[in-house]
């Protein structure tokens, strides 16, 4: 019997094989998975005219889907909405969180590393603003969270946001693979802009339905959760409600007790 054959019969052979298989699969996936274009087409920022610079950036990075005049396009893999009148707030949110430009067409633009500098995002926004008036990037006073009312923010959040984003802002599922993302570690500015512009499947909450001060309250409520304001009583198990509890009790919880029962059952009288 060769050495290899002997190892094959070892009780840990299965575990080693499993480990190797998982490692191989993981490595192959990491090597072969589609990635976002990393070039970013960084333009030199020497031009004085921001609109011109913004337009250049737009033509280089956005026009393939949104059209050369941001009028929108229809097509199998290049469909994009018109950007006339979406405002610099929408640009700041979509580009500032890395959702735009999209890596690939899909049901929903996913968050990913930002490919533009702040200056470039601003220039893109100015260009979009030049096409038609739209919502603007919020004033600093509404995102500094000074004097924000967390409890009021909670009320507004539960009425308007929790049905998709979950009452602990942990995100939730929408139809056909779309989803409401979790709202942890999102900049206050982007939270504000999302409410204002209603990206993707989200409805628009303009300044009449939720006033700027109320938006600040909502942001403060989310930030309070992020900073652990709800974390009482131990590990939160991901704040997904009874699903986390069930997973825990059926694995670790009952596992501990069965281990104790086996120990006791083996113990001599």
């Amino acid at each position: 019997m060769s050495k290899l054959a002997a190892y094959r019969r070892s009780p840990i052979a299965l575990i080693v094989l499993l480990f190797l298989g998982l490692t191989f699969t993981g490595t192959a996936y990491a090597a072969l998975q589609p990635t976002a274009p990393a070039d970013g087409a960084v333009a030199s920022a020497t031009a004085s005219d921001d609109v011109e610079e913004g337009k250049k950036l737009f033509l280089a990075n956005c026009a393939s889907c949104h059209g050369t005049n941001a009028e929108g396009k229809t097509g199998i893999n290049t469909a994009g909405p018109s950007l006339v009148g979406v405002g610099s707030a929408a640009v700041d949110f979509q580009v500032g969180t890395g959702r735009m430009p999209m890596a690939a067409p899909g049901v929903q633009a996913a968050e990913k590393p930002v490919v533009f500098t702040d200056k470039e995002i601003e220039q893109l926004g100015i260009f979009i603003d030049s096409l038609g008036p739209g919502p603007q990037v919020p004033d600093a006073q509404y995102i500094d969270l000074v004097n924000a009312d967390i409890a009021n923010g909670g009320k507004i959040f539960r009425t308007n946001c929790a049905m998709c984003h979950n009452s602990s802002a942990q995100g939730g599922a929408l139809t056909r693979g779309k989803f409401a993302p979790d709202l942890m570690n999102v900049e206050p500015k982007h939270l504000y802009e999302a409410m204002l512009t209603g990206p993707q499947s989200m409805p628009v909450f303009n300044d009449h339905t939720i006033t700027p001060q109320e938006k600040e309250d909502v942001i403060a409520f989310i930030k309070n959760i992020e900073e652990g304001g709800n974390d009482f009583g131990g590990h939160t198990l991901g704040s997904v409600g009874p699903a986390g509890d069930a997973l825990f009790i059926w694995t670790i919880g009952i596992g501990l007790l069965i281990a104790a029962a086996i120990w006791l059952g083996r113990k001599a009288a």
Binding site: G234, L237, G241
Partner: peptide, 28 residues
């Protein structure tokens, strides 16, 4: 019970028939 939270009622807020939260499941 001392180390893992269960049913964080404070995070859900008071019941209001007009509201609902994503991820509403009963106990298993």
């Amino acid at each position: 019970s001392a180390t893992v939270t269960i049913n964080a009622v404070w995070a859900y807020g008071p019941y209001d028939p007009a509201q609902v939260t994503a991820g509403s499941q009963p106990d298993f």
